[in-house]
Design a protein around this nucleic acid. Sequence first.
DNA 1: AGCCAGGACAAGT
DNA 2: ACTTGTCATGGC
Length: 281
Amino acid sequence: MNYIKINNLENFSVYQTFDCGQCFRFDPVKNIENENYSVEGVALGKYIRFEQPSPDTLIIYNSTEEEYERIWKNYLSLDADYSVVKDDIYHRFTDDDTMCSAMEYGSGIRILRQEPWEAVCSFIISQNNNIPRIKKIIAEMSRAYGEPIGNGYYSFPTPKALVEAGIEGLTALKTGFRAKYIYDAASRVYDGRLDLDHIKKCDTETALRLLQEVKGIGLKVASCSLLFGFGKTDVFPVDVWIKRVLDKYYPNGLDLNSLGEYAGIIQQYLFYYERYNNGGS
DNA sequence: AGCCAGGACAAGT
DNA sequence: ACTTGTCATGGC
């Protein structure tokens, strides 16, 4: 199988990046011919596989150098300098043991730059749900309403395809009360009431407000959408795990307005740290 | 059997 | 402006 190799990487772990709950379409590859950690799945409408033979090396199967520079480098946020991110966080929280431990623990996490619509739709599905089931629903949804891209994989469904699926089709995917939310979001994107390209250009406050016009998108889902699908890192999604972190480590409160432009990355370190320590799957 | 999961909403204070 | 019950579904 053809592959390319990227060298001299820092602050990057395939395992952590794809295990930290930010994306739902990748799974570990089992029974490969070596002992390296490897994940495979669908992103940007393509089947792709990432393998990490050593901490500073990445192998991408089924791709080319040209495609890496054009697509995957950006998708994996490998064009960002995370030593700058970590320095910024470290200087804000030098004496905060929780923050430093969390950052150290998830030191290989990169915030993926997923497609806007996929992020919006995925995090609508995520509400009051658990990650294994979110993944299952999205896999089924893609199989039913996405396009086949080979080897039994399917692209993420377009808004148009989900509008055509209708509330009934979406309910059949076991989405429960979220079916009407997904439908509303798909409808708004399809008919232009929700302009994702425009949201990407908006300031964060405006983008949060516009996303929350959709039925079923509140502050948390809007924040996750912006962080994982629109490249906006100055949001701080608060879910049940983060609430737990705030109660447990910050009984006197954590000033959520002093987190800086990498608030979302801070949040992801804390999320991953707490979720692991409590045996989440 | 009951509680929980990367919440949001409506109704009630 | 805060609190509470409800919403589907499946794993534990």
